[in-house]
Design a binder for these strands. Sequence first.
DNA 1: TTGACTACTTACTAACTAGTAAGTAAAATA
DNA 2: TATTTTACTTACTAGTTAGTAAGTAGTCAA
Lengths: 190, 190
Amino acid sequence: MVKIENSKRTILNLAESLLQDKGFNGFSYAHISSELGVKNAAIHYHFPTKEELGCAVIKRYRDRFQLWINNARVKDLPPEEKLDWFFGIYTNMRADKGKVCLVGSMEAEFNSIPKDLQLEVEGLHKELLTWLEGTLSEGRDTGVFKFNGEPANKAALILSSVQGALQMARALGTKKFRDVVDQHKLDLLA
Amino acid sequence: MVKIENSKRTILNLAESLLQDKGFNGFSYAHISSELGVKNAAIHYHFPTKEELGCAVIKRYRDRFQLWINNARVKDLPPEEKLDWFFGIYTNMRADKGKVCLVGSMEAEFNSIPKDLQLEVEGLHKELLTWLEGTLSEGRDTGVFKFNGEPANKAALILSSVQGALQMARALGTKKFRDVVDQHKLDLLA
DNA sequence: TTGACTACTTACTAACTAGTAAGTAAAATA
DNA sequence: TATTTTACTTACTAGTTAGTAAGTAGTCAA
């Protein structure tokens, strides 16, 4: 009998990676089990349904994001560096085999994923937006960022853009992603 | 025997709609055939493989876009109205049962779609970018648009953003999409 | 040492997938 | 009218999918 080390965590890591690579409809329990050298029933033992597995991936990411933004290493950063940290998350995804963000991946297939998963994605997306809005607001107050209109709308613009840019980079290359990030900085700091 | 009216066109219409709704991995020949009241082999008669069907959808869209932008009704518009026309395409998608753009849908699943389809998507994406870049460039030259940096980069930012915003709107509602479009105008026209 | 518990395997199901080969009805063409 | 072509149906295949029930090996606690 093959034993998976840190089974739940290992499965979640693989599922997260597959979600970002192929999307919810593009991966199967067989992908995970064969990669780990076990039978698909072993995965079902830990996550009975694909819906539960998907939800667990997003839930874990939400928790992780909350830990990050509440950690002093991010919290105490000036707004400019906070934004750089944020862009860095997406830059790392792009560098990691051309992955896209979970939110974008799942929203592209939104109408063919389970209801509970949709709700998790909605929750995550709101949390990302809220943090970014706060950071933009803070940055404009301190005079680092310059933009017109509501911080919430600028946050939606920037977030939707990096989400789209990761996808764009798959067809047009990494440079396009960097160009978008640089343009955002140019727009904000000019 | 049931006859499909304008069979090729009707199938392409349905396939395009399904691609924008559920993604390439989210729809099947059964979805199309049952909707049309025929057998799945009838669809295979017109489009032997799913790859060919997908490619045909994108090809048709590319042709359509070229026709649009070369038509006087768009070509002769001032840059500001050209941009409004462009945003209008995406606004209509959102209004049409929350569809997302073909490019975003396929790029989110890019690593699990056939090679030829990837190339079609790449072609379409480049054409969209090129047109938008030209429009932004023209608008800045005539003093209507204001932005720093290269028009190509600003075009990539805007396109990736509307692509992402259509996906975002699925989880967070249509208002979010409108907010993003309005913010773009605010950024460009301010 | 026994018994319970955890983490798996074996073996299966029912549904769905893209795709094919052979047959047929109706329409177009000669 | 006869023949060919077009657009389908019938009937099927082999592979994949999520999911399940029953069995088993190793671990741990009483």
